[in-house]
Amino acid sequence: MSANEPLRAGLPWRTYATPDADAAPTRFADVSWDGKRHDIEYVFIAPQRTQQPLLVFLHEGLGSVAMWKDFPRTLCEAVGCRGLVLSRWGYGRSSPRPGHEKWPVDFMHRQARHFLPAFFEAIGHDTRADPPWLYGHSDGGSIALMYAAAFPDRVGGLIVAAPHLFVESITLASIEQARDGYVTTDLRSKLARYHADPDSAFWGWNDVWLNPEFKRWNIKALLPDIRCPVLAVQGYDDEYGTMAQIDGIAEEVPHAELLKLEDCGHSPHRDQPAKLIEACVAFIRRHHR
C-alpha cells in the first residue's frame, strides 16, 4: 500500500471543514507511538500524481495543517508533485498533549526517530520503496534533518526553512516574548483558530524551549550522516535564529545548498513566497530522479 492511496483500509478516520475552502478533507491516522495511541490529522495533496515525488510538510513549533494555509498546495502545484501535510501530536486537531505532561528535552529526536516512522507506517506509506521529500519549517526543519540523518535511505531530499541546530540567545528572547504575549494579549484566541487545544500546542513548545536543560540541545553532530540533497533557507530578519543555523548545515553537509533571503523573518513561506517557491521548484527538479 503506497501513500498515493487516499486511506488504508480499516483505519479509523473522520473529516471536518478546514479554514481553506479548497483544501482536501482532513483524515486522522491511528498512530501507536511512545506507548500510546494518537489520532494524527493529515491531508493529501494531488495523490493521483503517482510518478512524482511525495513532499511531506513538517510544521513549526506552533504550526498545524491549517496554519500552513495554501502554501503546501501552491508549492506542490508549482513542482507538479504529491503532498502530505500533518499536524504532529499536540497540535492542530491531532490528539492534544495532556496538561500535566511536559515535552522532554529530546522531543525533536523522538519525533524524528520514532513518531515519523510510526506515522508513515500508520498511513501505509513504504518509505523504502517511495522515499518522501521533506519540507520542514523551524522545529519541523530540525526534525526533518534528524530523520534524514537517522534514515538516510528513506528520504529523497530535504528543504529546511529556519531550522534549529542549536539554541541561540535570540531564540530564547523571542520565545520569552511569545510567552508574555500568550498571557497578556489575544495570541491564545488567534492560535485557537488553528489548534483544537491551543494550550496544548503553546505550552508544550514554550515550556521545553525555556527549560534550562534545553540550552545544551545541539544536533550538529548528527548532520554528517545526511546523504540526500539539502536546501537550507533562512531570512536575514529571522527573530528566532541567525544565519549561523544554516551556515552550520553547510559546515557539516558540504553538498547542502543555502538560500539567504532579504526582507524575510522566521517564516519564508509567508514573507518571501515567490522567491522561496522558485528556489524549491528548481531544487527539486534538479535533484529528483
Rank of each mutant, 00 (worst) to 15 (best):
residue 99 G to R: 15
residue 116 L to N: 03
residue 96 P to H: 06
residue 251 E to Y: 00
residue 24 A to V: 07
residue 274 A to R: 11
residue 108 M to G: 12
residue 235 G to C: 07
residue 46 A to S: 01
residue 51 Q to C: 09
residue 246 I to G: 05
residue 282 A to N: 08
residue 242 T to C: 00
residue 66 A to Q: 13
residue 191 L to R: 12
residue 95 S to P: 14
residue 23 A to P: 09
residue 38 H to N: 13
residue 82 R to D: 00
residue 77 E to M: 06
residue 241 G to R: 04
residue 248 G to Q: 00
residue 61 G to M: 09
residue 47 P to W: 10
residue 99 G to S: 09
residue 157 G to E: 09
residue 45 I to F: 08
residue 136 G to C: 07
residue 16 Y to D: 02
residue 61 G to V: 08
residue 33 W to N: 14
residue 136 G to M: 03
residue 9 A to S: 13
residue 246 I to H: 00
residue 112 A to T: 12
residue 30 D to A: 11
residue 187 L to I: 04
residue 110 R to F: 02
residue 130 D to L: 08
residue 21 A to R: 13
residue 207 D to Y: 06
residue 39 D to P: 10
residue 180 D to H: 12
residue 218 N to G: 11
residue 250 A to L: 10
residue 21 A to Q: 13
residue 243 M to T: 05
residue 63 G to R: 11
residue 273 P to A: 02
residue 276 L to M: 07
residue 177 Q to R: 14
residue 21 A to S: 12
residue 106 D to N: 15
residue 243 M to R: 05
residue 155 V to P: 01
residue 201 A to T: 14
residue 244 A to H: 05
residue 167 V to Q: 08
residue 233 V to E: 03
residue 240 Y to G: 00
residue 162 A to V: 13
residue 105 V to H: 02
residue 57 F to R: 07
residue 217 W to P: 01
residue 18 T to C: 04
residue 7 L to H: 13
residue 25 P to G: 04
residue 189 S to I: 01
residue 259 L to C: 09
residue 159 I to L: 15
residue 174 S to E: 07
residue 195 H to L: 10
residue 170 I to R: 10
residue 48 Q to S: 10
residue 7 L to M: 14
residue 88 R to S: 13
residue 45 I to Y: 05
residue 254 P to I: 06
residue 34 D to M: 11
residue 226 I to W: 09
residue 232 A to H: 01
residue 13 W to A: 13
residue 3 A to E: 03
residue 91 Y to F: 15
residue 18 T to W: 03
residue 163 P to W: 00
residue 150 A to S: 14
residue 288 H to T: 11
residue 286 R to A: 02
residue 103 W to Q: 15
